[in-house]
């Protein structure tokens, strides 16, 4: 393949990565923004979403589309419930103290990972795509499902943005984010908002995982990469900033796709990780964030 088409292919794959990454990172960013909790187990919620999707779709004995749709509904609910329980049992008791919650979510990471290994096993397993459509470009054919993933992610992100900025629920969340004590004084049930936000963050990761699992396969160690990439995205985008998160996800996703297509992926990761660490050191508000809080 010539350079031009090769670049187009890399960009398309990068956009798929970016779409999934944006959804996942949005969950992490939401949790950090509202609760000031760095959820190290976020990648495991992603992994859990993929594994539950595999279980659901393998139980449904019908057309793959039905199994997939069932997974798209069930998996986020299951993951949200797990997140809700861990929030009530652990994070709330820690009073959302930043450092203690990081240690606790590391603990959650290990527990979820081990349980996945025990129940799901060490193998990577595929979930069939709901449809197999091939879109033909002049130079190569491309999976129509992957393009649908991008479209679905865009829709979900728009929906999240709408909820956060245009509805009462969003207002309550933003009030809590801005000043939880005052919000409490104005009768906002901060406690329940936190629980809801933590569950929602995990569900976003789960949805992202269900969308990508027909392309990527479910695997018990698949949570680490999304976690690190989400960290990178959230940091570059500015901690807790929604727009910054999406912009950064596109940048990182496409950048990752293009760079790994032409260079050693390990070297690309090393450079990206170092750059992001330096951003956090010298520009803690992120590249696109406006104010440091």
């Amino acid at each position: 393949m010539a350079f031009g088409p090769h670049l187009l292919l890399a960009t398309l794959d990068g956009l798929v990565t970016a779409a999934i990454l944006a959804l996942t990172a949005l969950g992490l960013s939401l949790v950090f923004g509202v609760m000031r909790v760095v959820n190290v187990a976020h990648g495991e919620f992603f992994m859990l979403g993929a594994i539950v999707a595999w279980f659901v779709s393998s139980l449904v004995d019908a057309h793959p589309a039905i199994g997939f749709l069932a997974a798209l509904v069930v998996s986020p609910l299951v993951v949200g419930a797990v997140a809700l329980v861990s929030e009530r049992l652990v994070l709330r008791r820690l009073n959302y103290q930043p450092e203690a919650t990081i240690v606790a979510t590391i603990g959650m990471l290990y527990i979820i990972q081990q349980l996945a290994l025990t129940t799901f096993g060490p193998a990577a397993r595929a979930v069939p795509a709901p449809f197999s459509l091939r879109i033909d470009f002049p130079w190569f054919g491309y999976s129509g499902y992957k393009l649908a993933v991008i479209a679905a992610a865009v829709l979900l992100i728009l929906a999240t943005w709408f909820v956060l900025t245009r509805t009462r629920v969003g207002l309550v969340m933003r009030a809590t984010q801005y000043d939880s004590e005052t919000a409490q004084a104005f009768g906002i049930p901060v406690d329940r908002v936190y629980a809801g936000v933590f569950a929602t963050g995990a569900m976003l990761a789960a949805v992202a995982a269900v969308l990508i699992v027909p392309v990527q396969q479910a695997y018990y160690l698949m949570g680490l990469d999304p976690l690190l990439l989400s960290f990178i995205v959230v940091i570059i985008g500015g901690l807790g900033s929604l727009r910054g998160t999406v912009v950064a996800a596109v940048l990182v996703g496409v950048g990752d796709g293009v760079v790994s297509a032409f260079f050693s992926p390990t070297l690309a990761k090393i450079i990206a990780t170092l750059l992001v660490a330096l951003v956090l050191v010298f520009r803690p508000q992120g590249l696109f964030g406006t104010t440091a809080r």
Partner: peptide, 14 residues
């Protein structure tokens, strides 16, 4: 053993 590490971490901070 990862499960044990995880549980011990959480119990400790709690």
């Amino acid at each position: 053993w990862l499960l044990i590490v995880g549980i011990v971490l959480i119990l400790l901070v709690l």
